[in-house]
């Protein structure tokens, strides 16, 4: 974009006719967009924090997230650990694609991009499984089977001869309770999942572009770098979501 760069201005980066941040306008816009998006996520997590601080009781994450495919209970955080690993892994493959882009190595870029797309898709699959599992336990955006105030009711229903699962469903449907936990969980992980989804779509588009040699002809792989920033940002948000929903 530096149509009027002048060699004499090198070293005086703020004097105009130059890129003072050493970054093209596209990269700058991506960075500032991510800054903006960070504020969006912060506001959502802020709402979560304020509501959780104000609540008199809260669901125990070790109880909520104790399942994995094939393991019904007793494996707290195992599945989310796998999800985190997948997302960090796909971030690594993305960096490797960017690094290959700097060497203008088309075949390596395509290889690492495909791995990144696979990683993103796997993460989305994991999230779909997790949500489905929570739905089957009676959770939804307005129903929180893990609310501590439901425990006495569930125990009462169980003592009347119901199975624990039936008792939970009955309690969650009939007893008014505080469902902030599930509302926030589905909203925030959903918003993050939407970002992952759009990231995967964009990744597929640039992978195809890289395959057909668009960036080869252009002479640089900056596009991979810009999309890479977005992809790492999605990973970055997950790091915080993981801490605040699953650990704290």
């Amino acid at each position: 974009m530096s149509t009027h760069s002048v060699a004499a201005n090198e070293g005086k980066i703020w004097d105009g006719g130059n890129e003072p941040f050493g970054a093209s306008y596209g990269k700058l816009m991506m960075w500032f967009f991510l800054l903006s998006d960070a504020f969006t996520f912060t506001a959502l997590l802020l709402g979560y924090g304020a509501l959780r601080f104000s609540a008199l009781n809260w669901a125990d994450p070790d109880v909520v997230f104790q399942s994995a495919p094939g393991i019904e209970s007793g494996a707290p955080l195992v599945f989310v650990g796998i999800m985190t690993f997948i997302l960090i892994m796909s971030s690594v493959t993305m960096v490797l694609a960017v690094e290959a882009g700097h060497r203008n190595s088309k075949s390596e870029v395509v290889k690492w991009m495909i791995w990144t797309v696979i990683g993103g898709a796997m993460f989305l699959g994991c999230q779909a499984w997790e949500w489905t599992h929570l739905f089957s336990e009676g959770a939804s955006i307005t129903k929180n089977p893990f609310a501590p105030e439901l425990v006495p009711y569930i125990e009462k229903f169980v003592s009347q001869g119901m199975s624990h699962h039936e008792a939970t469903l009955k309690a969650v449907n009939e007893i008014p309770h505080n469902y902030e936990f599930t509302s926030l969980f589905f909203t925030i992980t959903g918003f993050h999942g939407f970002h992952v989804f759009s990231g995967v779509v964009i990744n597929i588009v640039i992978t195809i572009n890289a395959m057909v040699g668009t960036y080869q002809r252009r002479g640089h792989y900056e596009m991979i770098e810009k999309v890479g920033l977005y992809w790492h940002f999605v990973d970055l948000v997950w790091v915080f979501v993981f801490t605040f929903f699953y650990l704290v």
Partner: peptide, 30 residues
């Protein structure tokens, strides 16, 4: 947990997003 998370965030931003190697102005403005 929060401190460990911030460490992770630092490594992602600094190395994966490459911010550590950008110009100081960009680092400040982010």
């Amino acid at each position: 947990y929060v401190v460990l998370t911030l460490f992770k965030a630092f490594y992602i931003i600094a190395y994966f997003m490459h911010l550590k190697f950008e110009k100081i102005n960009l680092i400040y403005s982010i």
